[in-house]
Amino acid sequence: MSDLALIGPILAAMFAAATPLLFAALGELVVEKSGVLNLGVEGMMLVGAVCGFAVTVQTGSPVTGFLVAAFAGAATASLFAVLTLFLLANQVATGLALTLFGVGLSALIGQGFVGIPLEGLPKLHIPGLTDLPVVGQALFGQDIMVYLAVAAVPLVHLFLYRSRAGLVLRAVGENHTAAHALGYKVLRIRFFAVLFGGAMAGLGGAFLSMDYTPMWAENMTSGRGWIALALVVFATWKPVRAMLGAWLFGGVTILQLHVQGLGIDVPSQLLSMLPYLATVLVLVLISRDVARIRLNAPACLGKLFHPDA
C-alpha cells in the first residue's frame, strides 16, 4: 500500500477522534460565553460515559443511552451550578472537585459494567459516495454521532450570534451587573448554560464508551476533557474555530501513530506535544493584543455574581 493511499483512512480516523473533543468543547464554549468557567468537563464526560454505557447494556437502545448520558452529564453539571451560582463557591476549586468527583462516581457506578462488550453504532454507507477515493470514507462513512457533533457547530454559532437568547447569554458573560440591571435573570441563564455544557460533555463521554471503544473502563476519557477545555481557549471562544481545533488535535493524534507505524524517525513524544504547543502559541498571540482579548474572552469569565451586591 502506498503512503498516499493512507490519506483517506487518516482523514476518516481524524474526524472520529475529534468527535468527543468537539462535543465537550462546544458545551464548555457556551458555558464560558455565559461567564462561567467549569473545569469539571473530564468528570462530566466520565459520568456521561458510564451512564450511557450502563443504560445501553440494560436496554439495548443506544438512543436511550445517549439521552441518559446527556441527562447524567447535565445532572453532574447542576451540582456545579448550585454550588457556584447559588452558594457562590469558587468556580476553579469547584470545577476541579467536580472532575475528581466524576472520576470516583463513574468508577463506582461502572463497577458491574467492566468487561462487558457492546456493539458500536453502525457506520453510514452510501453506495458510490462512501467508496469515493480519499474522502469517501471520511465524509460518508462515519456514524451518526460524528455528523451530529459537526451539525452542532453551526447551531451553536447561530444561537450565540444570530439569536436574541444568544445575545442575552453573551451579555451576561460580558457584564453581569449591566445585564442584571436590564432585568435579565443572570443566574437562571448561567444555570441553563452550565446544564447544556454538562449535557454536551456527557454526549462526548458516551461517544467514547458506546461507540469509539464500545466498553467501559475506569478513567477511560484519559484527559480528553482537559483537551476540550484547552480547545475553547485555542478557538478564542468561536464555535467554528473549536471544530477546526478539534480536527487538528484529532489529526495530529492519528498522524503521529501513523508516523510511528511507518517507522519514520521522528520522536512520537514531539508529535503528541504539537497540539498543546499550538494552544500555547495561540494564547501568546492573543495575549499580545489586549483589544483582541477584550473582544473574544467573556469579560466576566469566572467571576461570581450575587444579585444583591
Binding site: 480516523a13 471503544t213 466498553m215 493524534t253 507505524g261
Partner: peptide
C-alpha cells in the same frame, strides 16, 4: 510495525493505534 501509545491503559488511544496499523496493511 510498532506503535507506542505511552500508556498501559488508554482504550481510545489503543483503538486509534490499532486503526492506524490496520490502515497501513
Amino acid at each position: 510495525r510498532v506503535v507506542w501509545v505511552n500508556s498501559w491503559y488508554d482504550p481510545g488511544k489503543e483503538a486509534e493505534a490499532a486503526k492506524a496499523l490496520i490502515d497501513q496493511g
